[in-house]
Design a protein around this nucleic acid. Structure first.
Length: 309
DNA sequence: AACCGCTGCAACCGCGCAGCG
DNA sequence: TCGCTGCGCGGTTGCAGCGGT
């Protein structure tokens, strides 16, 4: 007796989202905030199921999402956390706020898993939770990829997404200001902070995964996410291109105005070099072994990642 | 130029969990 | 306590784009 699929209703549209649908969804979320997905299709008139709306928002339209160009450091984090947590992509994604679980999952399945299998032929993958890197370290490793990343840490911004992708990036960018000022978002951050404080005794070790019951693990995960919230605030500056030119109200722009807004936003992004954020600094520090960040990875994981590159 | 296989990624599907009445 | 409902997660699929022949 299975539950009937949510998208079985006649008239529910499937397949790729159109820019128009994206704009409708973004406009609605800008006004009402994410959540209550059940009501989104009915209130917006979108012929999509609630799940599809949620997924589209989470994986593509949400502000601050970065696609493609995984850095060696991100690879290292993913590899390390995958070894620690297994295929719990949502948990892994919580350590990489710019990445979605879907993105990480895809990247793992299409790139990293293959690399791991390829290299596992010559090296033993340790089954224990401390992955892996020892053999590589003992054999020496090529850290050129890491050095490159450290030389040009902002290279990721020079990626050339598709035309439509750039338009959704602009949607995200435009939304950035709303998310920052959104009372809901602020409340969420506050809530995280409170959770973090309440668990301060454990937070110091919250980055250490210990053997515990599934329920406890779940709670620990939440705590970890809470710990990350503060870091997320720092990330804001990285995630956005600093909408100093002013927030464009999404409810008011359509057609040619939208195209112009997109063009201007793109121009802004091309002209302005993003400031060095706390995270960028953290990445530098991490590479130099001066980790005081929220996620402390074994330095050799960078090497591991570079090795795979 | 046409075909074919491969790759990467967006989107879908099914299940489990949590909240609520 | 139980059933219903909505949300979130992980696995899987489908398709567009690309390169090779």
């Amino acid at each position: 007796m299975g539950r009937p699929p949510c998208c079985d209703r006649v008239g529910i549209k499937k397949g790729p989202w159109t820019p128009e649908e994206d704009i409708i969804l973004v406009s609605y979320i800008q006004e009402h905030g994410p959540g209550n997905w059940r009501s989104v299709p009915t209130n917006t008139g979108l012929m999509r199921c609630s799940k599809s709306c949620r997924l589209r928002w989470i994986n593509y339209l949400r502000p601050g999402i970065k696609h493609g160009n995984f850095t060696p450091h991100e690879e290292g984090i993913i590899i390390h956390l995958q070894a620690l947590l297994g295929n719990r992509w949502a948990a892994i994604a919580s350590y990489l706020p710019q990445r979605t679980d879907n993105d990480i999952k895809n990247y793992w399945n299409t790139h990293l898993k293959k690399k791991m299998i390829d290299t596992a032929g010559s090296y033993v993958i340790s089954p224990d939770t401390s992955p892996v890197c020892h053999d590589y370290m003992s054999k020496g490793c090529n850290t050129e990829a890491v050095k490159q990343e450290m030389k040009f840490p902002l290279s990721r911004f020079s990626q050339t997404p598709s035309i439509y992708a750039s338009s959704t990036e602009n949607i995200s960018r435009l939304l950035e200001g709303w998310v920052r000022s959104s009372p809901k978002a602020a409340a969420k951050k506050k809530e995280f902070a409170i959770t973090d404080n309440n668990n301060s005794s454990s937070s110091s070790s919250s980055n250490t995964i210990t053997a515990a019951s599934p329920k406890e693990n779940k709670q620990a995960e939440r705590n970890q996410v809470g710990c990350l919230a503060a870091a997320h605030e720092d990330l804001d500056s990285l995630l956005s291109f600093e909408n100093t030119s002013g927030m464009i109200s999404w409810g008011k722009i359509h057609g040619p105005q939208l195209a112009q807004a997109n063009a201007e936003a793109k121009q802004d992004a091309e002209n302005s070099q993003p400031p060095l954020s706390s995270l960028e600094k953290w990445l530098f520090d991490e590479a130099l072994g001066q980790t005081d960040g929220f996620l402390e990875l074994p330095a050799n994981c960078l090497s591991w990642s570079a090795m795979l590159s």
